[in-house]
Design a protein around this nucleic acid. Structure first.
Length: 378
RNA sequence: GCGGCUGUGGUGAAGUGGUUAACACAGCGGUUUGUGGUACCGCCACGCGCGAGUUCGAUUCUCGUCAGCCGCC
């Protein structure tokens, strides 16, 4: 098996677990947060910086790289790792999310999805075979099934129809996969908020030799309670000896709730996106760095953080950079936010090993200024 | 000293004899969850240089006054 999951320990307080995933480009401990580098770059950061933050794996995106610069060019460069000079594990999303996020420009049928390019308006067609073919050329260590990420809310009949189609697409992708020796393929569980559909989808996927499983259709605007229900109705039906990945979650609350339920991997643009707009995730809650109250605050974003930004720069300075529209500010907050989440999963792993993850989570929430039942998703 | 032009929020700048003075930028606050994000959403002049007059009503008309700019002595 290309990607091997090794279980290490399950926390006595919950289903949270610690393990290790090995790939052709190194191994990483789980639970792990994966920064997103959609266009073969984690925006504003160099690969060396990303590595120094403690991430063992980053994402890139099939749809975006397909449009630009094109899969053939990445392949000619020697694959995504060489092209962007990143030698650790990488994962590519299938383009399935774009079916959702670009929904005003798409048409879905059994064969695949017809898009209109967001770059030049040209008509494009994506199918499971095309997505897997592109991902084979890109060469990430973990590639994803081409699925339909259903919006929330969606009615039962539509979700049922969509899940069946996603399952047929998953099988087609598996059949089309040409690099089973060095690229792991994960299946994606959909099913919206319906327990029987989630269970059904998981059970059908388990019949095939996927290397890991993802839970999709989350973080599409649903309330936190609904999110937790979707995890609860899905996790029991996934095999314990394979990695589990919840797609697209990045707020501390969503991540910690996933870890508590035994999830191993998560990715999100949230830390880097909000960083570029001046919001930092800190142990005492969010810091909107443009705020006037930081004008003369010469302390770090987060006194408890060990990142480059917090070791060297003050809120007043970073605030100045944002008001002066200087790019260095975006870099500094991006570095901090990614490190913050990775430090959070590092601390989670330690807590799990010490059988006190739920205590850790509650302590984190209290300091962050919220509790498990607060309404905010962040 | 004389003549002309102009005076609207932090800035630039619309506008009208009569409901809440357009817009932009800045400022202030918020949003962002498998990145279509130099994005998005709020708030921000009880007042239109000052004073008086005309009018039912004036930022808008008239007179005076002050300030700035331009020109002429």
């Amino acid at each position: 098996m290309v990607v091997k999951y090794e279980f290490e320990h399950k926390c006595k307080q919950s289903n949270a677990r610690v393990g290790k995933i090995s790939t052709p480009h190194g191994e990483f401990e789980t639970p792990m947060f994966m920064p997103v580098g959609t266009q073969a770059t984690v925006k504003t950061l160099s690969p060396e910086e990303v590595k120094s933050l403690g991430s063992g794996v980053i994402l890139s995106n099939t749809y975006h790289l397909w449009l630009r610069p094109g899969a053939d060019i990445v392949e000619k460069a020697g694959g995504l790792h060489k092209f962007m000079n990143y030698d650790r594990a990488m994962l590519t999303d299938s383009g399935g999310f774009q079916v959702f996020s670009l929904s005003d420009l798409r048409k879905i049928d059994e064969e695949g999805v017809t898009f209109r390019s967001h770059l030049d308006g040209s008509k494009l067609f994506m199918s499971p075979e095309i997505s897997i073919g592109i991902q084979n050329k890109l060469g990430a260590d973990i590639i994803m099934s081409f699925d339909e990420c259903i919006p929330y809310p969606a009615d039962y009949d539509y979700v049922k129809k969509s899940v069946d189609r996603t399952l047929r697409w998953a099988k087609r992708g598996l059949d089309a996969h040409q690099r089973k020796d060095d690229q792991a393929l994960f299946g994606i569980v959909q099913g919206g908020v319906y327990p029987e559909l989630r269970e059904y989808c998981a059970n059908e996927l388990k019949k095939h030799d996927f290397d890991g499983f993802a839970i999709g259709g989350t973080s599409v605007g649903e309330p936190k309670e609904v999110y937790k229900e979707m995890l609860d109705m899905t996790m029991p039906h996934l095999p314990y000896d394979k990695p589990v990945y919840v797609m697209g979650i990045g707020s501390p609350v969503f991540i910690l709730e996933a870890i508590e339920r035994g999830v191993d991997m998560f990715d999100c643009v949230l830390p880097t996106r909000i960083a570029r707009h001046g919001t930092a995730m800190c142990s005492n809650g969010r810091v909107v760095i443009r705020n006037a109250k930081y004008k003369e605050d010469f302390t770090p974003l987060d006194e408890e953080c060990d990142c480059y930004t917090c070791q060297n720069y003050s809120k007043a300075y970073i605030r100045h950079l944002f008001h002066a529209d200087e790019q260095f500010g975006q870099r500094l907050v991006s570095i901090h936010n990614i490190r913050f989440l990775i430090k959070m999963v590092e601390d989670s792993r330690e807590a799990i090993r010490n059988d006190r993850f739920v205590d850790y989570k509650n302590e984190f929430y209290k300091k962050y200024g919220l509790d498990e039942n607060s309404k905010t998703n962040f």
